[in-house]
Design a protein around this nucleic acid. Sequence first.
DNA 1: CGCTGGCACTCGGAAGTGAAGAGTGCCAGG
DNA 2: CCTGGCACTCTTCACTTCCGAGTGCCAGCG
Lengths: 338, 338
Amino acid sequence: MLSERRLQVLRAIVQDYVGTEEPVGSKALTERHNLGVSPATVRNDMAALEDEGYIAQPHTSAGRIPTDKGYRLFVDKLAGVKPMTAPERRAIQNFLDGAVDLDDVVARTVRLLAQLTRQVAVVQYPSLTRSTVRHVELLSLAPARLMLVLITDTGRVEQRMVDCPAPFGETSLADLRARLNSRVAGRRFTDVPRLVEDLPDAFEAEDRGTVSTVLSTLLETLVEENEERLMIGGTANLTRFGHDFPLTIRPVLEALEEQVVLLKLLGEAGDSGMTVRIGHENAYEGLNSTSVVSVGYGSGGEAVAKLGVVGPTRMDYPGTMGAVRAVARYVGQILAES
Amino acid sequence: MLSERRLQVLRAIVQDYVGTEEPVGSKALTERHNLGVSPATVRNDMAALEDEGYIAQPHTSAGRIPTDKGYRLFVDKLAGVKPMTAPERRAIQNFLDGAVDLDDVVARTVRLLAQLTRQVAVVQYPSLTRSTVRHVELLSLAPARLMLVLITDTGRVEQRMVDCPAPFGETSLADLRARLNSRVAGRRFTDVPRLVEDLPDAFEAEDRGTVSTVLSTLLETLVEENEERLMIGGTANLTRFGHDFPLTIRPVLEALEEQVVLLKLLGEAGDSGMTVRIGHENAYEGLNSTSVVSVGYGSGGEAVAKLGVVGPTRMDYPGTMGAVRAVARYVGQILAES
DNA sequence: CGCTGGCACTCGGAAGTGAAGAGTGCCAGG
DNA sequence: CCTGGCACTCTTCACTTCCGAGTGCCAGCG
């Protein structure tokens, strides 16, 4: 177990390194933080911290920089979450309040997060899995062609074309529309398959084919849309990454373009509370020198999606976590209102 | 006027520089292209080209690199558009054919363009301005709350909430829905305002407020959505930009995040045919060292939106133009089918 | 036993040097 | 008008040197 002072030294190293981006030496440490001991003592502590794997030196005769393990300890034990100031909170709320629709909410959230944290922001669209159906609409576009529109409680709208095996009359259409809505409106997406199972039985033989087609399209939509969408922003912040650009930045940009990777990344994060994945804790190799701070957000008590930021492992964790948490909270409120 | 050979020299310089990314000297030129003259002669030609502003040298005793003006001449006079090979065309078609909805079409197009050109791809969603209305749907969510859904011929769907000033009965709703559709279905968005102008007159006094509200929401949607959306991809290709990263890449990433900038960029490009904007020809300062190749695409003969790529001025223009043109063509086809 | 000051040592980075090589401009001759 | 030759310019790279930050260790002190 590390002594209290050694933890303080580690904290100081992380803070200084995050601030200066340069390896920090024993002398500088004692000057900038009043630890009450001499550089020599700090050196001993540093040696111990290095033995334990919390810090490392890039080369002999350079200062120390925190390792992933060091950041982990810092995040878990040494640092809290820095709350947003009142003006900041007001600004967040104002900014988000102006949103006109779901796309806009997400877009604004991304911008906001990127600006607040000065890092890359990732916001997942509210998932359909945990959403409920607000309304299903069927429109007749041509005698044997329908459009299926699905509206969720989070304001998301999905549409699909349906080619019917046989012409489908307006009466049947109205009937189907009514029955469908009475069964699924207000229900969770996951319950829908069960709820519509026997629906074709209520129709005349000639219409059953079409009804089945419509239903299977509906179910497909649910499944497909579980491959959820997300929006990213603030990539320009990557340029502040480090000095050794091309090599670091490239895999990150590639990862950000692979929605699958990002979704997996967010998916792996814990369902409740904030998750911080540091460096090699990220499964995806390209993100081995980045940290991901993510948290679920939702309209009610329950999280419907996640958002977060991706930045260098050398990031201001307390500040970033504070911003992420605050934004998630306000987005949740906005969604609840709309 | 430049002699035929000098033009050839310019062409050779552009080609070599694009290939090697290094200033090209007189000797290398004569070796790699059989110009039939000696290096000394080429040097004279180069001096002339430099006087005219088509090429420049980074420092004395370095080779020459094309200037924006040089690229312009190259694009206008010296290079054609390199057509895609048959296998490439098949690949494009196959890739796009798998798309399930409009979002998917756009997403695939972006990926494809980025991959083909190895540059940053930008694809604008089909604009509402030139589209026609396929259907307008009204759903009653609560006694005094409606949802307005607008479906375009390009498959795009927009929805808006409408808070009614007074409760609105199902009969009136059906009436409004029918009247609205009979007037605007199949019509261009720009014609809609005129077509619905006198619609409230057809309703009872008590419903007129609601009808007006619905109509103004509809018109708002048309206007708002003219601030069109777009999707970008292939930003990882920016890392191949040059050696002097941070400074070059940063403003580009920033520009790409500013949809307004991009839309303006695409908007300024000519309406028909392919447009190439080279370096400083781009109004936006951050893109002064990039070229933008863009072209309109559309389901019919008419362009409904644009797509293109953003890359370093030192790009393979014939190849890029070929890819952009081919992709635009096939996307148009896909849209026409759906 | 832990802290401290001192000291020798290491090593990376900056600065300076010199040689090599690419490329140029110009000129005289074909 | 083209060509070969030549002197000149500058960048690049490898090499060396030097400086200083930072370390580890040790002996002494409270």
